[in-house]
Nucleic acid binder design. Structure first.
Lengths: 173, 173
DNA sequence: GCAACTGATTGCAAAACGCAATCAGTGTTG
DNA sequence: CAACACTGATTGCGTTTTGCAATCAGTTGC
């Protein structure tokens, strides 16, 4: 977890940033799940992260420049975590990772529908998603606001699979 | 390091395969460095992996189906490790990872030239590289053998940067 | 005041890691 | 045949990281 700087190899340095069991899970929940608060990340974590690990990783990701923290006006002790551009540009990597996992690993249907759609959408969909994230987390203007958001599309597909059958089809047997 | 199967999420499952500090480094050295033997991986490891960790990871990657082991005819105790198709298809992910690291992390010029070329080459170059790896590791025929191998191209560029200046330029100050 | 909730922190056991030493079997040399 | 280096590991041991439960002080609503 320390900043070894074992070598200047890009792959090695990338691994030193999120080459652990939790950092990328947290970023995944923020990116695809839209989670911004400590409790959201803690309780909604499908894999069950411990609070001390979450606190440590959030601190570390902030030091690395992947996240920023801001006060929530509604609650003086509440903090809102935001993705930086550095983290937002991980979207293509996450898309590839999801696509690879979907092919080679025993993924569940409900949880892989998002990866499937993201893979089919390709770079145009990733770009649209990154623009939406820049809007949410960095306050950038959302110029090409065509149709529903990528996250909403992915979420709807996920819920369709959970509820019944294939996305788009009627939820009947 | 265990096979938790924390969740069926593709990203989580991918992380459980190579979400540690060494697995992807080993695969990187095999893919880009062409290393096939235990000692090659041990001694040429830029980051200095320990022998017990290397032995453990090789065993684990074999169990996961990323590597296979075969006897080396030249030495009864020597083993040759081969990438499986599952590992070869990591090339696009490694390319993206290298590209991301090159933008956001303090990479060294020598070690990032490969990532730069691989990024510029894009999917066509990745496909060619994967075909070459399938030839080396799986014995598949190499149909489109046009020009020097991708690994040789990357290696030449690396050595050009180490020797002097930019790749393609004369190695003079 | 009191309970629920906020983002953490602490203590402790278990697991993983890093390093050096070591292993048995193999090939090479003299 | 003896000495030696090399093969892919394994073992012991101390350090670090992780997982889990309990706990913390400050904030909010009642």
């Amino acid at each position: 977890m320390s900043m070894d700087r074992r070598s200047g190899c890009p792959i090695n340095l990338s691994l030193e940033v999120f080459g652990d069991r939790w950092s990328l899970i947290i970023l995944r929940d923020m990116i695809f799940g839209g989670r911004r608060h400590f409790r959201e990340l803690l309780n909604a974590s499908m894999e069950g992260i411990a609070s001390n690990i979450l606190a440590d990783r959030l601190k570390r990701l902030m030091q690395l420049g992947m996240l920023t923290k801001a006060d929530d006006p509604s609650h003086k002790q509440k903090a809102i975590y935001s993705l930086t551009e550095m983290a937002i540009t991980l979207v293509p990597i996450l898309a590839h990772l999801g696509a690879w996992g979907r092919v080679w690993l025993p993924v569940s249907a409900e949880l892989s529908i998002r990866a499937e759609l993201l893979e089919k959408g390709g770079p145009p969909m990733w770009d649209k998603f990154m623009d939406e994230l820049r809007h949410e987390h960095l306050g950038m203007p959302l110029d090409t606001s065509a149709g529903p958001s990528v996250r909403a599309t992915l979420q709807a597909a996920y819920e369709a699979v959970v509820a019944g059958r294939a996305p788009g089809a009627s939820p009947a047997a």
